[in-house]
Design a binder for these strands. Sequence first.
DNA 1: ATTGCAATTGATATTCATTCTCATTATAGC
DNA 2: GCTATAATGAGAATGAATATCAATTGCAAT
Lengths: 146, 146
Amino acid sequence: METETEIFKKYLNKKNLKFTHERQSILKEIFLTHNHFDIESLYERLKTKGKNISRATIYRTIPLLIESNLINKAIRYKDRIYYEHIYGHKSHSHFICINCGKIIEFENDEKDKIIKRIKRKYNFKIVESKLIIRGYCKNCLKKEKK
Amino acid sequence: METETEIFKKYLNKKNLKFTHERQSILKEIFLTHNHFDIESLYERLKTKGKNISRATIYRTIPLLIESNLINKAIRYKDRIYYEHIYGHKSHSHFICINCGKIIEFENDEKDKIIKRIKRKYNFKIVESKLIIRGYCKNCLKKEKK
DNA sequence: ATTGCAATTGATATTCATTCTCATTATAGC
DNA sequence: GCTATAATGAGAATGAATATCAATTGCAAT
Ligand SMILES: [Mn+2]
Ligand SMILES: [Mn+2]
Ligand SMILES: [Zn+2]
Ligand SMILES: [Zn+2]
């Protein structure tokens, strides 16, 4: 199985783009843990580690990682986009708690069936599909009752 | 079957809010046709008809209509939110063409099944759920080939 | 009809994520 | 190392959405 770095390098090469230190640091930081992340927190995490990479560079790198099929937009919450790894992870959907922001992933093989049917029926070229559930998590419901 | 106006009035009443001319005009314009719409185009449509209602008022009225279960957020495209009627319309999902913005609605009873299962399994209180497909429509694919 | 008062409005300022600009610097192939 | 081209950082710009606030309106009680 190829490493994330190999995949990213291959992609950049194909597009005549460069594997800069900044892109390397961003890639490394993102794949350090398997968490949903947003740009601002990624920026802060890098800063903490002494990597003063500008927000602009991060914003410019994200689409490249998406194009490389390494990450994806997972969900939008409070005007921020949360991304996630997809390389090496089974496809899944998300529930997000409107109150506390907690994200729960769940399997849904049925979704792929729906997508396939729609694709056949309408002759679309599908780029992405998402099933998102918004609501209140167990914890937040408990608190509310008090 | 109650009219949209009756429903909206009832909701406003319950919340001690007022059925103003502005809110009436916005409601009327929205339910004039069954189309997905965004705030800016709604603002323009009202203007054309001599209703100079400020954007602020429209932005403030939309959440009230959502709370009344008359409309809903349908899809996000190019940084704009597109809304749609839900009152009197069967639940459905959306495909949107990334190239031309065309929206196609499709039935998906399976979605409700998924949602119910997830709800049971995790004890969520579900507020909304969406299945969205992004890609290229037939027309845009045809053009691309040339 | 008048009053009183909370709700509403419009104009404008503000916020905030994201994108753009551009002068300076780094990368990679020769 | 040299060169062409891509990339970067700093800060400005954008644009949808929200907040502010003085002036206005709706409506229920008199
Ligand atoms: Mn996930
Ligand atoms: Mn629709
Ligand atoms: Zn929660
Ligand atoms: Zn199209």
